[in-house]
Amino acid sequence: MKIAACQMVSGPDVAANLVAARRLLEDAARQGAGLAALPEYFCLMGQRDSDKLVLAEAEGAGPIQAMLATAARELGLWIIGGTLPIKAATSERVRNSTLVFSPAGECVARYDKIHLFAFDNGRESYDEGRVLEAGSQPTRFDAGGVGVGLSVCYDLRFPELYRGYAGCDLLAVPAAFTYTTGQAHWELLLRARAVENQCYVIAPAQGGQHANGRRTWGHSMVIDPWGQVLAVLPEGEGVVMAELDRARLAQVRQQLPALAHRRLG
């Protein structure tokens, strides 16, 4: 199966972001992708954190979900829908949710970001906990025989989540890494997750200068189970593609059966 990571530089205009996302999904389909993944916050990089509260959708309804469902059905794609704000139990919080749509246009999986990012180096300051409600359940799904484990951005720093996905063929990490943290740790962490779990990793990212002043690292990539970067886009809007090769998966796991050698956890 060919898999595609879509990189965006989303802004505060949801309609414009949805048009851009659809364009990238169409590009992925034209190139033969069977599965395409959008980045975290593909639908909105607002001027302030609270913008997510206004635009939050109820699960199963809303223009963002409608676009994903329609694109999946019309393009015949498995779509990992980056993240979008889904209403939480309280109106003061939202869930940062990944929704997955099958080629039939049906929502088949939901993952709510578990680990909420906070960072302050004196120049940049972020605290997702101000508006996000953390999820608690890991989620995996089957994409036409490909087992996929879901995660989002800051989750990447918590390997215990991914160890729970042992046996999956693909790990998805839609993200909006800051330029500062991405430059230091993005590729390092992605390749580590691929190597230690002996699986492919698809990492669609935000990549550029946003209207709200934030700069994201980009470098959307696909990585194989030996840790080799198969495709990468440093910055700007675009699509990177690679083949998820089941024979390669089997070869790596047979030659170095590290998962079978585990003694702890």
Rank of each mutant, 00 (worst) to 15 (best):
N212E: 07
G236C: 06
C168M: 13
F177P: 11
T90R: 12
E160A: 09
A242N: 04
L84I: 12
Q65D: 08
L189S: 11
D49H: 12
L170S: 04
Q209Y: 04
G149L: 05
V100L: 07
A109S: 07
V229F: 01
M221I: 03
G238E: 07
P103F: 06
Q65W: 09
A247N: 11
G46M: 10
L264F: 12
S91L: 12
A109M: 05
G122D: 00
R248L: 15
G144S: 09
M221L: 09
G164S: 09
S136C: 10
F177I: 09
P85E: 12
P39W: 02
R248N: 01
G32M: 01
F117W: 11
Q47R: 14
G76A: 02
G62W: 00
A20N: 08
A61V: 11
A109L: 06
I86N: 04
I114K: 01
N197Y: 00
A33V: 00
G238Q: 05
I79P: 01
T90F: 07
E40C: 06
G218N: 08
G11Y: 13
A104Y: 02
S102L: 06
T180W: 06
K52Q: 11
V19T: 15
A242Q: 03
G207F: 00
C107A: 14
Q137R: 13
S125K: 07
D51T: 12
S102M: 03
G135L: 02
G62Y: 00
E160H: 10
D13F: 04
K113A: 11
P39E: 06
A21Y: 05
E106T: 08
I80W: 03
G167W: 10
G60E: 08
G149M: 04
C168F: 04
L150A: 05
G122V: 03
V239T: 07
R30Y: 07
V148K: 07
A37E: 06
V148I: 10
G122R: 00
R23D: 12
D112T: 07
